[in-house]
Design a protein around this nucleic acid. Structure first.
Lengths: 276, 276
DNA sequence: GGGTATTTGTCCGTATGTATT
DNA sequence: AAATACATACGGACAAATACC
């Protein structure tokens, strides 16, 4: 009984949700009803609900009520693949990869721009600050839901070497990895991803339609691709909301039938650990 | 002026923080002082501060005040490595890998247990539900701070095949990958990681000393390792708090001097994107 | 160790605004 | 237009944690 009242109320509701008594999508009783049930003030009820909101268990809709969050079927992006072709969320392979999993993919045409390299991009691409780079930006959807944002940067001298379609807004249907090889003789030898989880910025919150209290984080993947002479040829920054994305990494020999699960491991099923 | 007052107050404080007028560690004015400055009630000031808290910008300490969050230097875990030895956060390579980056690593002795396989573990390890598995659990620290939790599961029949040290509490200093090869003739051929971002459970919140409002998520990595005959030999579940960890994936040929950055890309420096 | 001032945490009540049905 | 339900904002009171003397 050491816990404050709003926590006890929140834990009681949480228990009901996790026990399935309040299934996803179910409506909770109104604040006034809960106020009577728990014999607390409306503000205390609201404190309890806020606690549930920050844990992603419920959401409130003005004029409607409070509802148990409905889970999203995550999409699994593979981070490993053949580095000399396209893969791991790169270019042309996006749509077929998604649709192989019976989901509808769509994306916007690349928005092309020319920028000056600034930190930390300049260091990651081994360019002097202020060097011109081409940026190509795309928004991606799965089943009509905004799913990821991707911006690729290329050193401007690739255009001079023949890769002129980089600065045109159209799709490069064969994939930029193949296009750079054919047009400029750049052979991609490998890439390195750096993956960070952080809070979404305002643009991301708006595009992904995330709750604007920042409780859902995004995964930022920064992929630096290198040519066979060891020079960076591309930086691709992809941003994925954490509530609808998973990732997989495959190293070595793995049997084909070992499928990636289609739903996230539930916290309750994870090994109970810690607290030492 | 469409924004509610608490938001305007919060945005003003946020601006000061992001402009550096309130550097990390700095103390904000007290709720009563802010109340006078913004001509609002204390509860409205508190709503503004709560908004900043959920965005990870400030923290409150009862009896002391409100402070700008101090950033943590993240540790970068590599998810790719040589699958036939130890790597990618596996076993014996943990300490040397961490200390190569001039940081102090420590971990607890493995806590060994025997459990019955339940879902989703049974499916991931291709075992019938109820089959016995050995679990080995460790807690890991960097620079004295709790950094990750790791539990590995092995089918019990590996013990019968000779890997008896799996069920002993001591460290397997040569690494379990090497030990399984020597003792039971199991050659690890590869692995698959599935990576999910989710809210921490209560054990994790306590062990990692996370704020108990759940605003910092954890990264859950489930690694299924396969032997050369294509059978799962191990499931390792690692949990990392998102505020102090980054990950890297390397595929193909990448130059050595391309170092992973030691600090996270700041949201401000990320390419501005999104927004329909 | 004790006492006091300071600061945030919890809880109450009330009034009014806004979104939805 | 009316009813319902959540959102914002005010005010007050006391508790709990911390720092300082």
């Amino acid at each position: 009984m050491a816990d404050p009242m709003y926590r006890q109320i929140a834990e009681d509701l949480r228990r009901q949700i996790e026990a399935g008594e309040l299934p996803p999508g179910a409506q909770l009783r109104t604040e006034l009803e809960l106020r009577e049930k728990y014999n607390a003030s409306r503000n205390t009820i609201r404190d309890a609900i806020k606690w549930l909101i920050t844990r992603g268990l419920v959401e409130t809709r003005p004029g409607q009520g409070t509802f148990v969050i409905e889970t999203i079927v995550p999409y699994v992006t593979s981070l490993t693949g053949n580095p000399t072709t396209a893969s791991g969320g790169e270019g042309t392979s996006y749509k077929p990869e998604v649709e192989a999993r019976f989901r509808k993919a769509s994306d916007t045409l690349p928005q092309v721009g020319i920028e000056e390299a600034a930190e930390p991009m300049a260091t990651e691409m081994a360019l002097a600050e202020g060097t011109s780079v081409v940026s190509r930006h795309q928004q991606r959807y799965i089943d009509g839901t905004p799913w990821s944002l991707q911006t690729s940067f290329y050193p401007m001298d690739l255009v001079q070497k023949g890769a002129v379609r980089l600065i045109q807004a159209g799709d490069i249907t064969e994939g930029t990895v193949a296009y750079l090889r054919e047009s400029a003789g750049i052979k991609q030898a490998g890439y390195r991803d750096t993956i960070t989880v952080r809070a979404p910025d305002m643009n991301e919150t708006a595009f992904f339609r995330l709750p604007d209290d920042g409780r859902i984080s995004v995964v930022e993947q920064r992929r630096t691709a290198y040519s066979d002479d060891g020079r960076p040829v591309r930086l691709t920054v992809s941003v994925y909301p954490a509530d609808r994305n998973q990732f997989s990494v495959v190293v070595g020999q793995v049997p084909d039938n070992a499928r990636v699960p289609d739903s996230p491991p539930s916290p309750a099923a994870a090994p109970e650990s810690g607290g030492g």
